[in-house]
Write a protein that binds this DNA or RNA. Structure first.
Lengths: 196, 196
DNA sequence: GCAAAAAGTGACCGCTCGTTCTCCTGTATT
DNA sequence: AATACAGGAGAACGAGCGGTCACTTTTTGC
């Protein structure tokens, strides 16, 4: 219960910041949730803001490693059903993975207070998914699974509504099942609309 | 400089809360921006939280008056161009009206801290626009301007991407022109896709 | 024109915040 | 066994917070 304290602090900070915001979180509560006394925290971080910055570093690095690199792209689906399955798998992960949910909530809450959070928020909420699906849709057009169209526009039209429903799940978790069903229905509708 | 102090406090509170969040706002700064001393505020509101609740009451009432009633619906367009024009008019208003922008930012920031903010956020960000465009699209289908389809699904597919770009403008105002152009392009693409 | 009520002032209170300081303890190194 | 050191404990700090109070000024109603 010593060496990994720094990481445990970051984990607890992500949880508290995402629930109460940076300003709403206090060091006493944060450390006592780890069975520590507040002064012990200052052996690992120089200040509250240093925790915030370390957390952002981690989130940026995690996002880059997981979604940033082109080689991490999923394979181009061979059928419409495969795209639906791929979508639902991604959505299921992103909605149920605690760390990802907390990251999204934190970015939502703090996007107007910190420039780096702002930039990462735009990636998470808008450009990230779009840039991921653009080459996918281009590939599906090449395979004759989708009608010829602007792949970037299609990716935007596809991912933005899904992203809106993911936000709904963050906001009202009790509607998760309903939202998942809506996403699946939307995915089918989209494919029906744009089929070759 | 006396009777309207209560309203001036609410206006200043909306501005500060939307920028720094509820926790990040302090009464001294809020009142001094109005040329008052903090104790004067307590003639009008019993506590900081009472300001917050009054603000939410106002936002809920404003939303209900402006978007909540069915008779406030815009007329069904007579042509695709008219829908684009209607959309761009709405977007232009919602992006440039200071009070609306601040309300949206505030709801974004505080949606996880307050249940009423959470509910209003869902209306602002998801269901409100969708419910507004559903009868519009149904009407356009009746007029033969759109192919027969599920109007609610179309409204969702239309408004969610637009909403995502409105959020982008809130987050990165310097991208407003770009976002407006994207919305217009998306609107045209949507109409081309779903034309009868 | 005057009394009463409303609005504004400035000093002050208790509390909590982030942070610091000194001391203690367990562990690893030589 | 002695030493060094990292990690934690606990008291204390100054500052800033939301909120109160007694008092003065302004506005209002008769």
């Amino acid at each position: 219960m010593a060496k990994d304290t720094k990481e445990r602090i970051l984990t607890a900070a992500l949880e508290m910041f995402s629930q109460k915001g940076y300003d709403g979180t206090n060091i006493r509560e944060l450390t006592s949730s780890l069975g520590l006394v507040k002064s012990a925290l200052y052996r690992h971080f120089g200040s509250k803001e240093e925790i915030w910055n370390a957390l952002l570093d981690e989130m940026i690095a995690y996002y880059g490693a997981r979604f940033g690199s082109p080689e991490r792209l999923p394979p181009v689906p061979d059928s419409p059903e495969e795209l639906v399955a791929l979508t639902m798998g991604l959505v299921d992960f992103t909605i149920h993975d605690e760390k990802v949910v907390m990251t999204r909530k934190l970015l939502t809450i703090e996007q107007f207070r910190d420039d780096r959070a702002r930039d990462l928020a735009t990636k998470h909420f808008l450009t990230g998914l779009r840039d991921m699906f653009t080459p996918l849709f281009a590939g599906m057009m090449d395979k004759g699974l989708l009608r010829r169209d602007d792949p970037g526009m299609l990716a935007f039209a596809y991912t933005a509504p899904i992203s809106a429903l993911i936000h709904l799940c963050d906001r009202e978790p009790e509607k998760t099942d309903e939202a998942m069903a809506q996403i699946e229905a939307f995915s089918h509708h989209f494919l029906e609309t744009y089929k070759a």
